[in-house]
Each structure stands twice: as structure tokens, then as C-alpha cells.
Nucleic acid binder design. Structure first.
Lengths: 362, 362
DNA sequence: CGCAGTACGGTAAGCGCTTACCGCGACGGT
DNA sequence: ACCGTCGCGGTAAGCGCTTACCGTACTGCG
């Protein structure tokens, strides 16, 4: 065996103590910056640590201090075909979730936390994963309605949990964006500025509170002016481009007439809709207007640029972490539900002539 | 205080043992599926676990079994302005790294590992982060040349490390895609099929082995036919769209003539180039041909669609994990460097008329 | 009917840290 | 010059698991 191979036996605090000629308590104190050891002692320990290249074991530290400094994040994944060479287009859906996660991570780092992340296949039972993650972290952030409310509630009794775009339970906090007001504003724009009178809402599965809330706001606004609001089970995508494209294709195949505007539950959905319409030589926005929700980066690179609702995506993640951290450190518990503001972004796909130049970079 | 609040005190294996009327050893044995306890005992333990909602503590388990079942992943992050509402366009760069990470995660899960992930700001010293991650995981996957070779080499002595697009060291393994052959093939296509004779290579920083290898292949191929190869310090992007756009803008500002084809170090770069050219009413590919590298999903949604080199992005991640796992579990050590095959993808941006319809979904 | 063999499951010893507790030497006040 | 005080730093007790080791109660065989 090669002597230069990795760790014959990992270093411990005892090795460092011996090397520095002090006790393990002193090493620990220096490493944790508490109880001010004398500068000279400090110095010797630091030197020993550097010479040996010692890194304290996180598991032991966590066990002893009852804090892992790890936040677990669980989200749904769409496809897992790692062995295939090609990447499905649906990987675009990485964006939304990943921007949130980035927000989590950045906020976590401020507190010295790292992020343990795990995706769950759509058809998998997430329970096992969630338990495993709970055991390895100080608290969990759950995207989407991954769990039924009872299960959530049960697990939340033992582990701090923050959900994203879910619902609060007695023991868990929910963080979401304000769906209602911006959706109403957006639909009002379609109704009042453009005068559309037949509109459809292309939502997602029913157990998505976000989609439901957006749909409700859409309906309410249509009713306000007596416009025809098309919706229902055949107008259910899955938040993804392919599902949306398929719905439009099916609709066209049935030879039904299209509404004047299609309001989508998110940008991915809008992407799929615009794609399929264009394929069928139906012009956006001249023939049919399309709007999204989220304002993912790609939204402004489409032609026409997508009119949508901007969510503070990264901030959603950061807020979720901050709430979780408050629960973990046992300070003042956060509100059961935190709602972040959104804003309507008018671009070209609703019929406005406002396609502007978007420079790369700032 | 509300009694239903989270864990008054976390459950331990002792609680479960008492509840089930067995010893902690039996609980542990059932939970780990070894040493076949009697079905009846097994049953009782399982019931107690379910009733209590017990989840074993990962830190204690890791400390005891000397295996955390966690893989650490460290990569560079571009911008961290979480407090700002807007998302920089550069967040598109999420894609490449995140697809790799997804590959890591999926491969990790097969072995019961979770993924601890941490980004490092471009201007931050990654050492501290890396040590911290090393302490919390069984091994590390490092994107990019995050560390100098000496540092890498030093750290790799104590922790299993796999780098991506870096270089192998005596103690660490490197995983990368085959830059040379596909780049040569791509440039040959530009040279031989399209007859271009002035081409530029828009690379990245010099410490990127990938960029260097691609540049070298580009040069070699140009020399083969005696074409003019433009390159040099003013043709250095940062793998990102904004840097690339700026370089083109500067070039144009100096009123210098453009080459017939711009070969980019990656797709992001090509994105920026195409954007800036279009802004200046320079047509792609009629006036200048552009090619990328990576084949990120968005590449085929540009107009014209991007001619590029496809890397098995997700598989790079999966391969990196598999190599790391081999190191961790001490089986046969993997090769010091693993090179995955790439392939040229001809689309419209090189001047070919091959823009095809790309349906959403499979 | 007695004893070796077997299998189940309990006891206890760590894993590598943090930290409460305490001993010891130096210092200053009287 | 003596003793109380204080600050530094060492000793040891866990943190919640896994698992080696061993006792016990059964089985089957002579």
C-alpha cells in the first residue's frame, strides 16, 4: 500500500493536544474561540493544528454540542435518468428551485450552517428521505407540498420545519409569495388595458396551494368584469413546459377555439404554451396573449418577452432559512406564515409593445 | 410555553428500547438490519419506533460507525446579493453546475449518501469552507480549480477528494470531459465545411484546464490548415455571458474587424457573444459564426440554435461520486483521471441550415 | 438425562468532541 | 508575609449511537 494514501487514521484532538503539549480542553477552546486561552497557548495550538492539518470531526462536534450546523432541504425532482446522455429540456425547471436553494444556502452560511440537499422523485414516497435528512440536520426546509398535512404536523413535532409554498401547521412555519394581489393586478391588466373577455387559467395539480390561490385570484378578477373564465381539470399542467405544451396540443387537436389570453400558473407553463402555439403558427400575443408567474431569468429572453409576476425567488429561500434558524436557536418563534411581496412585470407577451433591451450583466 | 412545541428533548434509542421492552442493542440491530434479531423482537422495536416517531441521530451514528454518509460538494458562486429583489441574468450560470450536482446527488442516493453543498464566492478564500465541509462529510467533490495544486494535495492526504475539470494529484482523482477531440472536430467543421479562415477562441481564465485544453485544440486545428487564429489576453471571458458580451463590446468599440467565427469556451460565453453581436446588428451566423461548449439546455432555444459540444453533464457528477465512493469505501481505487466522451452538436449558429424543431418533453 | 452447540439479546466500551468542575499558581490587599 | 481571589488549563463525564463480547436459554445428540 502506498504510504501517501489518504488518512491512515484520522487525526483527533488528542493528536493536536500532544503535538502542542497542552490538553484536549485547550485545543477545543482555541478552536471554538471561547474562554479565552492565553495568547501563548493559543499560538501553540494553532501552530499544531496548521502543521498537522487537523480538521475537527463534525459528527463528534455535533453530538457533543447538540448542533450540527446543517440545514436540510428537500424538493421534488422530475427526472432521474442519469445514465442517458441527453438532458431533458425539462431540466430548465432546475431554475426555480435552485434559485430558492441558493437563497437558503447564502442565508445559512451567515450562520455557519451548511446545506444538506436531497431531491425526491415525483412518484417516490418522501417519508424515508425526510427522516434520514432530519437525522442529519438541525431542521428541514421542504419545498412544495411534499407531505400531507398530518404527516408534516407529526414530523414537525420533533424537528423544526419550514415549508415553502405549503401551509403552516401548529408546529411548522410556511413561507410563500403573495399570489393574490399580483395575480389580480395582472388579470386586471389583461381585462382593462387589453380588453380581453375570454381568458383561461392554466394551473397545476390541485394540491398546490400556490396554483390554487393564483387560480382563485384569476377567477375573482374575471368575475368582476363578467369575463369568460376558462378553467377546470383539462387545464391542469404540472408546472412544467412539457405538460403545458401537451395541454395546448390536445386542445388544438379537439379543434376547440382558444381563449384570447392564457394565464399560466408559472413561467415554465407559459414557456410550453408559447412553444406549442408557435409550433401551430398561432402568434403570441397577436392571436393569443400569454402570461406567466415567477419571472425566471429566461422569461425575458423569450420572443416576445414574457409578461409575468416577479417573485423574490432567492429571498424566499433566505427567508425560509432565517425562520428555521429562529426555530432552531429557540429565540422568538417566527410567524406561522410569512408572505413576501410580488410585483407585476409587463413585457410583450400580454400584447403590450414594451419589449425592452435587456443587457447581460447588471 | 406551548406543550405541542418541537422536541422537549429529542428521543434516543433508549426511549425506544424502554418503550419496546428490549435493550438498546436490539433497537440498533433492528434499525440497521444486521444480525437478524428474532421476528418478534423486530416487530416490537418497529412498532415502538413508529409509535414514537423516532429518528436516529445522524451525528451519533456517524461518530460511532465512522461513516457519515454525506458527500460534500463545493463550487464557485458568482453573485450573492440575496437582499436585492432582482435576479441577475447571470443566474443562468446555475445550470451547468447544478446539472452536475444533480448527477452527484442521484449517484449518491444509490449508496444512501446525502449531499452537503456549499458555494464559495469568487473572491473568497475557499480554505475555511473546504475544511468545514471536510469535517462534515466523508469525502469532497470540488468543482473547478478551487484550490492550488499544493493545497489540494495537502488536503487530499486526509480526505478523499475528487475534482471536476481540475487536475489529478497523487491523492485525488479528477473527472473531466474529453475536450480535445470534440473541439478539434468542431473547429475542423468550421474550417473544412464552412471554409472560415479567421477564427477567434474566446476562452476563460488561464487556470482553467478545460479552457486551456480547448484553446490548445483550437489552435492546433487552425494551424493544420494555416488559418488565422485570434486569441490572447483580451480574449479571456470568465465562462459567463456578461464577461463575453463585454469583450465583444470592447472589441467593437475599438473598431477592430471581427473574425469569421468565434469559438467560445462554453455556452454561457457564446450566449453573451450572440447577444452582443445581435445588439450591434451583426448577424449570426451570416456575418459571424459562433459556437459554444457544454450543450446546456438553453443552447437549443436560441435563435439561431447553438452549435456546440455536448458533454454528459449529469454523468460527470455521477461519475465523480462513484469515484469518490470507491475511495471512501476503500475498494479498488479509481484511475487518477477519468475522461468522459463528448460529441459535436451541429446546429445553426455555425452557419449550417440545420435548425430543427425541438419539442418540449422527451 | 446430561452436556455441547447455537442463537438471541443484554452489557458496556468506545467513537471524537464540548464543557462543567476543580486544582494550582500568581497576584494584590491588609 | 499571609491568605483570598482570580484566571488558566487539566481531568473526566457525557452526547447517542454501534458492536464486541459474553451470559443465558434453548436445541439436539450421545
Amino acid at each position: 500500500m502506498d504510504e501517501s494514501q489518504t488518512s491512515p487514521r484520522a487525526l483527533t484532538i488528542y493528536d493536536v493536544a500532544r503535538h502542542a503539549g497542552v490538553s484536549i480542553a485547550s485545543v477545543s477552546r482555541v478552536l471554538n474561540g471561547r474562554n479565552s486561552p492565553r495568547p501563548e497557548t493559543r499560538e501553540r495550538v494553532l501552530r499544531a493544528v496548521a502543521e498537522l492539518g487537523f480538521v475537527p470531526d463534525g459528527a463528534a462536534r455535533a453530538l457533543s454540542s447538540r448542533l450540527k450546523e446543517v440545514v436540510g432541504v428537500v424538493y421534488r425532482r422530475v427526472n432521474a435518468r442519469v445514465d442517458e446522455f441527453a438532458i431533458s429540456d425539462e431540466d430548465e425547471s432546475l431554475l426555480f428551485v435552485d434559485v430558492i436553494n441558493r437563497g437558503v444556502e447564502i442565508a445559512a452560511r451567515r450562520r455557519g450552517f451548511d446545506m444538506l440537499i436531497s431531491s425526491v422523485d415525483v412518484y417516490d414516497q418522501p417519508d424515508g428521505r425526510i427522516d434520514s435528512m432530519a437525522g442529519k440536520s438541525d431542521g428541514l426546509i421542504l419545498h412544495d407540498p411534499l407531505l400531507s398535512l398530518e404527516k408534516l404536523s407529526r414530523i414537525a413535532k420533533r424537528t423544526p420545519i419550514v415549508t415553502l409554498a405549503g401551509r403552516p401547521t401548529p408546529n411548522s412555519v410556511n413561507v410563500r409569495a403573495d399570489n393574490e394581489s399580483s395575480m389580480r393586478e395582472l388579470v386586471a391588466h389583461l381585462l382593462d388595458e387589453h380588453g380581453y373577455r375570454t381568458l383561461a387559467y392554466l394551473g397545476a395539480h390541485d394540491d398546490s396551494p400556490d396554483s390554487a390561490a393564483r387560480g382563485a385570484a384569476f377567477l375573482a378578477e374575471c368575475q368582476r368584469v363578467g369575463a369568460t373564465a376558462v378553467t377546470g381539470p383539462e387545464w391542469r399542467g404540472n408546472y412544467m413546459a412539457d405538460g403545458a405544451a401537451k395541454i395546448i396540443a390536445d386542445h388544438l387537436a379537439r379543434d376547440e377555439s382558444l381563449p384570447q389570453a392564457i394565464v399560466c400558473a408559472n413561467d415554465q407553463t407559459a414557456l410550453g404554451v408559447m412553444y406549442e402555439l408557435t409550433e401551430n403558427h398561432i402568434r403570441v400575443p397577436e392571436d393569443v396573449a400569454v402570461t406567466g408567474f415567477d419571472d425566471i431569468p429566461v422569461a425575458r429572453h423569450l420572443r416576445p418577452q414574457l409578461t409575468t409576476v416577479r417573485q423574490p425567488i432567492q429571498k424566499l429561500g433566505a427567508t425560509a432559512f432565517d425562520a428555521l434558524y429562529a426555530m432552531i436557536s429557540g429565540g422568538t418563534p417566527p410567524e406561522p406564515e410569512i408572505v413576501l411581496p410580488t410585483s407585476v412585470v409587463i413585457r410583450g407577451s400580454c400584447g403590450c409593445q414594451s419589449d425592452v433591451v435587456v443587457p447581460w450583466g447588471k
